[in-house]
Amino acid sequence: MTTLTKQPDPGLSARAPRKSRKRGKPSDGFRGIGDLKVALFFIAPAMVGLILFYLVPTIRGIYLSFTEYSILGDPEWIGAQNYERIAKDPLFWNALGVTAEYVLINIVLQTALALGLAILMHRVAKSTLIRGALLMPYLMANVIAALLWFWMLDYQIGIINQIIEWTGLPRVAFFGSEQWAIPTQALINTWRHMGYTALLIFAGLQAIPNSVYEAASIDGSKAVSTFWRITLPLLRPVLVLVLVVTVIGSFQVFDTVAVTTAGGPVNATRVLQFYIYQRAFNEQDFGYGSALAVILFLILAIVAFIQMKFLRGNQSDLD
């Protein structure tokens, strides 16, 4: 704006704009560079963080996946050998299956329950206290939640097995049996994340204008068909976002497994993230672990892409 105040001779007003434009050009450009500098200065902390903690480790991880590396000593280039070994590794395929089972149980239940909770929050429970209480499990650290359930579901001393025994049924080895170990952990994390997911969906519900509902009720639509024909379609962008985020999070399940079953019994809970940890940190095979991590990364990218593409997550039907 300084250029304008410096406008010379008012008598030359006709030429003044041109002049000022002429003078303005380099100064605009100059200001642009000045802005860039300032912008860079403010971007720098995030940029440095991004490069240092995301970009460099990602590239290094991809590089390491082509090496044999035990953390002590130097990585040794071995080409695609790690990937060839993974293709033939029964534990990798087992991990994929176990992880898929976990994600399926976790996501289906969690999304259905969260949707129900969100609608209840929207229609019935207007009290902030109740809405807040739904978030309580999410405020607990993952490891604490896992250990608490591990203790409550314990075969010998767990309160839930005590109750089961009182009802006359046989005790259940929730974490110890191969059939139960994954569903148990999927349910624990469903319990923990349900409230948070419901909150996201609830926000989406609030974005649907009331006029749409009014129009529906004038047309004589019942509550159930209003839900299927109005609420759900208009909620789609939010649901897609929630699904993408929760599916990615679900694929990365680790801490619950690490503090309870550690991959066992046998291989029943050796989920992909735990298998990566085991190969890299327990067995000091960081090359192999990196290759597994790259594969998980690709799987997640493909899953997210498919979800966005087919559920049209970037479009809204509200406009």
């Binding site: 314990d154 010998q156 080895a173 974490f175 049996s177 309870t260 079953t261 019994p265």
Partner: peptide
Amino acid sequence: PKLETTVGANAADNFGAGK
């Protein structure tokens, strides 16, 4: 004991508890 009942349990403590 069956292996599935030992997950999370401590064998020595079970001995101490008379099990």
